[in-house]
Design a protein around this nucleic acid. Sequence first.
DNA 1: TTGAAAGCGCTAACAT
DNA 2: ATGTTAGCGCTTTCAA
Lengths: 342, 342
Amino acid sequence: MSVTIKDVAKMVGVAPSTVSRVIANHPRISAETSKKVRKAMEDLGYHPNVMAKSLVSKTTRTIGVVLPRPAEELLLNFFFYELIRGVLAQLTRSNYDLLMAGGSNEHEELETVTRLVRSGRVDGLLLLYSRASDPVIHFLHEEKVPFVLLGRSLDYEDVPSVDNDNVQAAFDATNHLIAQGQKRIGFVSGPSKLAMTQDRLMGYRKALTEAGLPFKDSWVVEGEFLLESGYRAMAYIMSQPEPPTALVVIDDVVAFGVLKGLTELNYRIPQDVAIVSFNNIALTELTMPPLSSVDVGTYQLGYTASQMVLRMIQQVEITARQIIPHRLVVRESSLLTVPPHA
Amino acid sequence: MSVTIKDVAKMVGVAPSTVSRVIANHPRISAETSKKVRKAMEDLGYHPNVMAKSLVSKTTRTIGVVLPRPAEELLLNFFFYELIRGVLAQLTRSNYDLLMAGGSNEHEELETVTRLVRSGRVDGLLLLYSRASDPVIHFLHEEKVPFVLLGRSLDYEDVPSVDNDNVQAAFDATNHLIAQGQKRIGFVSGPSKLAMTQDRLMGYRKALTEAGLPFKDSWVVEGEFLLESGYRAMAYIMSQPEPPTALVVIDDVVAFGVLKGLTELNYRIPQDVAIVSFNNIALTELTMPPLSSVDVGTYQLGYTASQMVLRMIQQVEITARQIIPHRLVVRESSLLTVPPHA
DNA sequence: TTGAAAGCGCTAACAT
DNA sequence: ATGTTAGCGCTTTCAA
């Protein structure tokens, strides 16, 4: 049998409520009683029963993280992991716990969220990517549950979210290639229903337009956030009569596939094809050649999102949409000493 | 206000206890009542309050995962992530939730675990690596809390754990190199206090001994599970008068650093230096050249460990130590067409 | 087969 | 400043 508030009360010779007040740092409690109670708690190894506490307070000090359904989207891997690190750091600091819940398809995902919310298991939620017409967002919006989206909602304008300026990020990445003298720039994309994909594609197009460079449909390949995706894209994109001499790639892991594909096809990087990608995961430094990548502040993304849900739970006013700054990290994969031949 | 068991009872015109029995699939309940109650639950969108339930049942249907303190050990990254995937899959299947708790140092880690256990937040725990004289293991052992170790305890023989036969795995990896005609084989190692490191080192030595090959201290470099660790090791290990012509590397990510280091030093892989590593994460296929690696069944490791805690919680007898089979996946980094010159 | 009542450990009025 | 009491939503004897 675990030690309860009653045991502590009995030991000190006070009422349970007094012990409760000591725990809650109630103002009107004598220093002396407080000290005795604390000592007793220590001696008995007392830890408050969170379930009982939650039952009456209707709060859990727990934030749920809903994993996007497996494989493809999830395996943003290092990126995802770094995100969780940021989330965990902030939550731990605030004495909140993290509940991870899966769901292997869209239906299950909604079911899980419904359960977590309705059964009072979490005080708030973090959603790890936004899709078009996401039923989960719809549900949470209706129920007025505190939640923060990592990314951007395509359906609701005012959903609290933490995001990068992906349009600008892709614009910057593309412009970097343009500044290197690149004229034929392609885009290896992700799933088109993700807001992130759409934004980055838009930034890429904008940069081309402003520079008066051609945009060709055949230079844009849609795929998943998978290694194979980038690999396969190369067979297609490079078999064209006029293949691009530079590529903007949606994600580092996809870029690894791109590197692999290009190398097998005997293209030199960056001389024949220059590459810039996104997320700047640790491995980007270690590929051959090292990969230029836009650092999107992954850790900070997670950290900020957590901070935001916590604020919402405490009813503190928040700005609905926070933008984490990005920064292009230039490495060899995009650096040309001599401009590409036209 | 959320809908409770009382609301359901009132709607149907039965007692709350009857509703409770329906939920629990109590045998002695009429099919008719059961049907009516279920219908009402559906109509009202009833979800049991987990806190109330936990309070009386003293169980939470939650398993805690304790993260090893950050950075170094944690960043086994892909490996770690794949593990969590396995854990989550099994827990979700069994309707358990996953609570992740951090701790940035050994002290904090113990504190977190103590809190989770004493406050009744979790029914069981998963520990993600074993160190020598780990206070957390000691605590859990004393408290008789159901927990499973991923790895091996250096202190207790009978701690429930899921592990690979790391001695054999390293033995196999090393033998593969030997079979290729390699005679000077080095070892890029991890933190020496981890059981995993010790086991793999032992397997490596065993293979050398059995083949009558020399073991040299200077061919073994201790490091972290970091990219830089492998990178730096190369500067040291290859500057010797007689450097190894093959390397067994503790982890894929470390091996990436090794690849990088060797390439910069103008060694060709596998002609000058052959490489085999461990964990077989997805990226191993994509390096130049693709990396031979021992697949340790990461997903299964997590899956099995979860299964095991659940069994312990249900008081089902378990075998204290489960071994997940490994399998060497040979790729180009270790494949020699011509034996290395002596 | 079902209902009534007690109680899980805690907090929060309301007293004193 | 502290004690008394009721109740959070649920399960579980004990009765009927």
